[in-house]
Design a protein around this nucleic acid. Structure first.
Lengths: 296, 296
DNA sequence: AAACTGTCTATTGTAGATAAAATAACAACG
DNA sequence: CGTTGTTATTTTATCTACAATAGACAGTTT
């Protein structure tokens, strides 16, 4: 069926909330930039909004006629891109399902399982291979290297090198660098979360990602920033299947972040180094503990 | 035309030299392992050898009938895999041809240019994107980030972190680790090359790669080892288009390697660190000098 | 019975086709 | 002048098809 129109559907849904908020819509061009799609897609969205009698569309005026109803939205399942679907499906298989290291991965079987063509699966695997969890045997299958203790150790080794360097780089940023403002915001967000940790602890994963990314960005090194993708995806999925003690774990991590932020603000390299190491050590512990040991 | 039979052709050529050397061929299975192909391909090769009356093939006996002639070989151009062709072609465009950073990369155009389907080009670009030289705009084109000074600086920054750590790791390997033997071999190869530097300096690039890979392997960290792919490809192509002063440059590098090897053998971390830094510094200089500065 | 071969099946690599989406052009409008 | 209507073209994302290749099993040879 060639391309799915998920871009359209997703943008349409976002446009519905937009129209509900504002009561009208801006120019086609502007709408395109806010939704991140081309004018072609914008016009398709407007057509549909008009057909559903949600807006009166006449040239420049796009006024809301009625408030969008839940029925007007496309179902969420239809809005995620194929690569996202494949990613989720694949990660479930290898992280949640007891996939043994050394297992063969079969493009065709995966594709049939997920219900897509092989091309997309193949492209996903190629993209995914940079995470070091799978490896290709040319002209043959892929091999799952597995989410093992070694993987976690190798991953954290690099993470620690990079983060220590980035943290030091951050502390050396000029006073007027915008990152300092972002750090203040982070500080506030963390305090906020800590104050309501019992209800908010589930949101930590996202905050964690944003905070570390902020630190890494200061390195201005594309390889360091790109590497953080690996950390992100590993932690993201890992948190999902492994929720033992997460309230305490996250509370502790928030506190460590706050120490780390405070240390950055002093711009004292020794302090930064100490706070950063402390946090990284406990992050590593957490990750290692959660990896199921292969029985001896 | 679906798949090209380059695997077959390449293996066939290698088999020709094999049969010329030995006068006969081993079992299908064994031949498969030495050539690195499946039995299916082995049998196809044997069919052809028989058809060309180069061997008499009857079940287990595969004796040579006549010495293979140059004509029997497939032309080399037909033996390289499509991805290699795409890689070379692409690298020529972006490194040799004056490709400006920010330039758009068009899958279709590239495919037409190279004379292949879009699928292969696309997969190449995805694989290549991990080198940080290009970036995808989803649903739209790729953007060439360019082989710029920043790229080189970011690359060498990581390289230096990794290599210093690997070198320290190497020095700490146990006495009986096989890497020490490999290092002795490297030492000999370097001395060899230095003795005949005037005729051999062109082979340095390959030796360089092997030496650094040996060092990096001691880290046993897949991310460090994988990252070295980026270094390899950058230097590989860079050496090709940029041969100014290469004799002196390479001679100097060989000497630095020898110092570095000697330092490793002492297992003295301070010495290793010093020799490693010295070499990395001059490698960085070389790379930076060769990057054409964008005119101000 | 171990090693090998003959035969068959399943999977990968690649091309080609098609719908979705992007991009472009330009006259007409307010 | 920024916007829209219109129309056309190009490119991407994805599917399907098929030859090359890998791999499995059963039968054969030593």
């Amino acid at each position: 069926m060639a391309k799915q129109n998920t871009v359209f559907k997703d943008a349409f849904n976002r446009c519905l909330t937009l129209v509900a908020e504002k009561g009208e819509l801006p120019s086609e061009l502007e709408l395109g930039t806010t939704l991140g799609v081309s004018r072609t897609t914008v016009r398709a969205i407007l057509e549909r909004l008009k057909a559903l009698e949600i807006i009166a569309w006449d040239k420049r005026s796009k006024a809301m006629l009625r408030t969008p109803q839940p029925d007007d939205f496309f179902p969420v399942e239809e809005t995620s891109s194929l690569s996202d679907i494949i990613e989720r499906s694949f990660m479930r298989r290898i992280l949640a399902g007891g996939a043994e290291p050394g297992m063969q991965i079969n493009e065709l079987e995966l594709a049939r399982d997920i219900g897509t063509g092989t091309t997309s699966v193949r492209e996903f695997l190629i993209r995914f291979s940079r995470f070091g969890l799978i490896e290709k045997r040319p002209n043959s299958h892929w091999v799952l290297k597995g989410f093992t203790r070694e993987f976690a150790l190798e991953l954290t080794e690099i993470r620690e090198m990079f983060e220590l360097r980035s943290a030091a780089g951050f502390a050396a940023l000029p006073e007027d660098h915008p990152a300092w403002r972002d750090l203040d915001d982070m500080d506030a967000l963390h305090r906020d979360m800590l104050a309501n940790i019992d209800t908010r602890y589930r949101d930590f994963s996202e905050l964690d990602e944003r905070f570390h990314l902020l630190v890494h960005r200061s390195s201005s090194n594309r390889f360091i920033i790109d590497f953080y993708d690996i950390i992100t995806i590993v932690f993201h999925y890992h948190y999902q299947w492994n929720k033992a003690n997460d309230r305490e774990r996250n509370a502790r991590a928030v506190e460590e972040h706050l120490d780390y932020i405070a240390a950055l603000k002093t711009r004292d390299l020794a302090k930064v180094d100490r706070a950063c190491r402390r946090h990284l050590r406990s992050a590593r512990e957490t990750l290692l503990q959660s990896i199921q040991q292969p029985e001896a």
